[in-house]
Design a binder for these strands. Structure first.
Lengths: 252, 252
DNA sequence: GGCTATATAATAGTCTGACAAATAACGCGG
DNA sequence: CCGCGTTATTTGTCAGACTATTATATAGCC
C-alpha cells in the first residue's frame, strides 16, 4: 500500500506485456513489436513523450530511454517539433538480434521468412567453406561433441536444440571472421525459433543428422567445396520443412 | 549569468569531440569509439553513472541515454550493483551502420578490413545474381543513369561517389530481399569510406568503370551467373586497390 | 502579389535531485 | 565450514522545471 507505483493492477495499467525486468526494455519491446508487425507504419508519428509516458504509466525518462533503444536500432527517428516518427523500413536494423526476435513474436510474414532463408542460403554455405580451410582441432572437437549430443537428444529437447546451435556457432567461429559470425549467428538463432514450430507441426521432420555429419566430415577433411555443398543441402532441407509447416498451418 | 549551463567554455569542458547535435548521441559516439578502438576492453567496467556524467559535464539522464544506445548495439551491458561493463566482442552488432562508422573513425585494423571485404565478397556477388533475375525496368534505368553519372564525375568527386553508391544500392534493392539490402548496404557504405583513402593514395586507382558496366550488362541480360562473376571481379579489384593503399601507408 | 524575415508554438532535449529496486559482498550465527 | 540475513553500492525510476530546436504561421518588405 505504501508504494503506489506498480501494485496498481486492475483495468488501468496496461503494461502486463509478459515478463519485464527493466521498464525501458519492456516498453522498447512493446513498441518494437508494434512497429515491425505493422501496427505503426513507417511515417507514422508517435504520441508526444508526455502523453505517451502518461498512457503507459511510466515516467517520461523511462519512455525516452525506450525510444533511444528503438532509435539506435533504426526503427524510429525523433526531432523537436516534429515528434518521433517510425523510420522507413530501409533504415531498420533487420539483422539486430532483438529486432529479429520482435519479428518472430508476431508471426513474421511468409515473405520475410523466405528472405531470411535466402540470406542464410547465401551466407552459411560460404561460411562452411571457410571453416573447412581454417578450423583448428579444438573447434573440430567441439563440433563433433555437439553433433553427438544432438543425435542423442534430437531436436525435440531443449538440450538437443542447444547442441544444434553450438554446432553452427562453432562452424561460424571457425571462419575467423567476426562480422560473419555475428551476422549468421543472429539469423540462425532467429530462424531456429521456427524449429520449435516446425517440430510441433510434423511429428518429426526428416532426420537432419545425416546432412549435419556430411558438413562435419567435409570440414574435418578440409574440403571447402564439399563443405559448401553439404551446407547448402542442409539449409535447403530446413527450408523445405519450414515451408511445409507454414503451408499446413496458414492460421492467419 | 542566468543560464549557468553551457557558457562554461574555457579549459574544463571536454565535449568538443567534433560536431554534435544531441548530447546523448555525441557521448554514445565518443564511448562507442573508445570501445571499438580497444581503449575500453571487453570486461572493463565503466565509471558509475554519477561520476561519469560529472566528468563529462552532462546530466545523468543524458549519460544514461547514451548508455542505452550502446547497450542497444550490444557494446555494453549494465546491471545494478555491478555497473556497466563492456560486452564480449561476440555480442557487438558489428554490422550496425553506426558501429561500423565508429570503427572507421579510428583507423580499423587491417584484419577487420579484410574480414569486411570477405563478407562483401560472399554477399555482393550473390546479390548481383539475384538482381539479374528480379530487377524491373525502372531499377535497370536507375542503374544505367548512376553509371553514366559515375563515369562523368569519376570517384574523385562527391557526386561520383554518390552515383557509385546509388548503383550498388539499386542492385541490392533489385534483389527484393530486405535483410540482404540493409546488410550489404551497411557494409558497402562503410567500406566505401576507404574509397576516399584509396583515392588519396594512388593518384587514380585502376578505372573501375569497365567492371561496373559488365555487372550492369549481365543484370540487364538477366544472366545470373555472369552477374555473379562480374561482381566478384569488381569487389576483388576494390580489395586489391585498398590493400595496396594500406601497404603503402602503414603510418600507424 | 510573391517572397523573405520574424514571431509563435509545439516538441524533443537537458538538467536537477530525490527515492526505489536489485544484487554482490560482507559478516554473523549455526 | 556452510547457510542466511544485512548492508552498501549501483543502476533504475520518478517528478517537474527549464532550454533548444524547428516547422508553421504571420507580418513585413520589395
Amino acid at each position: 500500500m505504501s508504494k503506489a507505483k506498480e501494485a496498481g493492477a486492475g483495468a488501468d495499467g496496461e503494461r502486463e506485456d509478459g515478463f519485464s525486468g527493466r521498464i525501458h526494455g519492456s516498453i522498447a519491446r512493446a513498441l518494437g513489436i508494434a512497429i515491425v508487425s505493422g501496427k505503426h507504419q513507417p511515417g507514422d508519428v508517435l504520441n508526444n513523450e508526455i502523453d505517451a509516458s502518461e498512457q503507459l504509466h511510466v515516467s517520461r525518462s523511462a519512455y525516452r530511454e525506450a525510444i533511444r533503444i528503438l532509435a539506435a536500432k533504426g526503427l524510429v527517428e525523433s526531432r523537436p517539433k516534429t515528434g518521433t516518427r517510425v523510420s522507413p523500413r530501409a533504415r531498420w536494423s533487420l539483422l539486430d538480434p532483438e529486432v529479429l526476435a520482435w519479428f518472430f513474436e508476431s508471426e513474421p510474414s511468409e515473405a520475410f521468412l523466405r528472405e531470411l532463408y535466402e540470406l542464410r542460403m547465401i551466407v552459411e554455405p560460404a561460411a562452411a567453406a571457410l571453416a573447412a580451410e581454417r578450423r583448428d582441432d579444438a573447434q573440430l572437437e567441439r563440433m563433433r561433441a555437439a553433433l553427438v549430443a544432438m543425435q542423442h537428444e534430437t531436436l525435440a529437447t531443449e538440450a538437443g536444440r542447444a547442441a544444434d546451435r553450438d554446432f553452427h556457432d562453432t562452424v561460424l567461429e571457425a571462419t575467423r571472421n567476426a562480422p560473419l559470425f555475428t551476422l549468421s549467428s543472429s539469423i540462425g538463432a532467429a530462424v531456429r525459433w521456427t524449429t520449435i514450430f516446425k517440430q510441433r507441426e510434423r511429428e518429426l521432420a526428416r532426420d537432419p543428422m545425416p546432412e549435419h555429419w556430411k558438413v562435419f566430415d567435409a570440414i574435418a577433411a578440409g574440403r571447402a567445396d564439399q563443405a559448401r555443398q553439404a551446407m547448402e543441402r542442409l539449409v535447403n532441407l530446413a527450408l523445405d520443412d519450414t515451408r511445409a509447416a507454414i503451408e499446413r498451418r496458414p492460421d492467419r
